[in-house]
């Protein structure tokens, strides 16, 4: 078993949970909110990786998940625009504008 503490202001609960979900084939985990931040307890599966390998896999996923969260936040608006336009036969979006100016 290995325990990792993360600052809550750096990682959302969703990011931590998704990271655990992604490495479920290697280890199981638990998340607790403590005064120091998120405390994550990792348990390698039987005949699975070592504690260190589990911790490495978790940290790697955590960084990727954090990046995914940033991309999601930055593209949410344009994604909604693209999908609504894709399935719409209306002319809600003025054709001369084509799309919003990059911000």
């Amino acid at each position: 078993m290995v325990r990792i503490t993360l600052q809550e202001k750096l990682y959302s609960r969703e990011t931590v949970e998704m990271s655990l979900y992604r490495i479920a084939g290697k280890c199981s985990g638990e998340i607790r909110s403590t005064p120091e931040g998120w405390e994550v307890e990792l348990h390698p599966l039987d005949k699975g990786p070592t504690d260190e390998e589990c911790a490495h896999a978790f940290r790697t996923e955590l960084v990727d998940q954090s990046l995914r969260e940033q991309i999601g936040a930055k593209t949410e608006h344009v994604k909604t625009l693209i999908l609504s336009n894709a399935f719409s036969k209306t002319t809600l979006i003025p054709q001369d504008e084509c799309a919003s100016t990059p911000t």
Partner: peptide
Amino acid sequence: LYDNLTRCTPTLLSAKYRTRA
């Protein structure tokens, strides 16, 4: 990504998405 030279890209992506679906 898109910039001022490719402002129509979201609209193009809508059309492509619609075609795929």
